[in-house]
């Protein structure tokens, strides 16, 4: 079993390091700084940290004002509030003028778990992806999170970084390279391609191992930038394998699966399946139980891959 590390912790620690290097970085939070880990930055740099109270709309617009004056804000709250409650503020104040605001949305997806449907953001990638100028990133592990936080600081323009509540297995070593907009093929295979994002990357790797034991070689792609999508990589793995399975901890509407389907539909259509939450709300439960309940376990990926292979065979 891999070491389990929280991407939130890595975010908080990396932001402190970046804050030491760059005076223009400021952080904002909406009364969730302990959970999002922005409190680490606030403790180290109290003069550059703004707790806005429970007011996400005000936070995003304030972050825009700070960015318009040369600061580089990291605005953190839970994904459901960051994306949903403040969507129009992000659209008008941040995306339209293309400001350097990094929206860091923790507690994304179903694995928020026990808090239930009210707090599970399963639509955030869809509604953020629709915004012009927005870049959308989701790390697969702690190593990638660190690289990603540094990359989004350097990127000019708005970014939505989705993190999770639960700990992720560490998949990558120190040599791992992350580049905004570039997918990483992290396992080769000729029979089908599994394109996954976030927590589902580790699940997909496990599934690929099981498929290999059954004689099926799946290529696994870590699609950590959802927008702009690495369409070149998507087309290449589709061409190589002839079948594509997407896996995400998000609605099948509008997220990774949609983005991949859009790209393949215009470039190289092959049989594909989108695994995700099938247009329904979540419920309370333990994160792993919920993944099982909504058809996102390793075993489910193995089964979908088998079905897809049969479709591919015609």
């Amino acid at each position: 079993m891999s070491r389990m590390v929280s991407t939130r912790d890595v975010y908080g620690e990396t932001l402190v390091k970046l804050g030491e290097e760059h005076q223009e970085i400021v952080a904002l939070d909406c009364d969730l700084s302990g959970s999002t880990r922005s409190a680490l930055f606030g403790k180290k740099f109290p003069q550059r940290f703004f707790n806005m109270g429970v007011s996400e709309q005000d936070m995003m617009s304030t972050a825009a004002g700070l960015a318009s004056s040369g600061k580089v804000p990291f605005a953190s709250t839970f994904a459901i509030f960051a994306s949903g409650r403040a969507w129009e503020q992000i659209r008008l104040c941040i995306c339209l003028p293309c400001l350097n605001v990094n929206v860091v949305a923790s507690h994304g997806g179903l694995t928020v778990g026990e808090d239930g449907a009210t707090h599970q953001a399963n639509e955030d990638l869809a509604i953020m992806r629709a915004l012009p100028n927005m870049t959308l990133v989701v790390p697969a592990d702690a190593v990638e999170t660190e690289r990603m936080v540094r990359s989004i600081y350097a990127h000019q323009g708005p970014v939505y970084l989705r993190l999770a509540r639960n700990k992720y297995p560490v998949l990558f070593d120190d040599s791992y390279k992350f580049e905004l907009g570039k997918a990483n093929v992290i396992r080769d295979g000729k029979d089908l391609a599994i394109i996954a994002t976030g927590y589902m990357v580790s699940k997909s790797l496990e599934a690929a191992q099981k498929l290999s034991e059954q004689g099926l070689e799946a290529c696994v792609v870590n699609m950590s930038t959802i927008k702009p999508l690495d369409a070149e990589c998507v087309t290449e793995v589709a061409r190589k394998t002839g079948a594509v399975l997407t896996v995400e901890e998000h609605s099948i509407i509008g997220g990774l699966g949609s983005a991949v389907a859009e790209a393949l539909g215009e470039s190289y259509p092959v049989p594909m399946m989108r695994m995700g939450i099938r247009d329904t709300f979540g419920v309370s439960g333990h994160p792993e139980e919920l993944l099982e309940h909504y058809g996102l376990s390793v075993q489910h990926i193995v089964e979908e891959a088998g079905k897809l292979m049969r479709r591919k065979a015609g």
């Binding site: 400021v26 005000d58 995003m60 617009s61 304030t62 825009a64 004056s69 104040c93």
Partner: peptide
């Protein structure tokens, strides 16, 4: 023009952000 406005209610927050940045500097 300093910021984008037009959808109502969002200008004062942006002005706050600018005012905070000016104070910091």
């Amino acid at each position: 023009v300093e910021v984008c406005t037009g959808s109502l209610g969002q200008g004062l927050s942006q002005a706050n952000g600018i005012a905070l940045a000016l104070k910091m500097d």
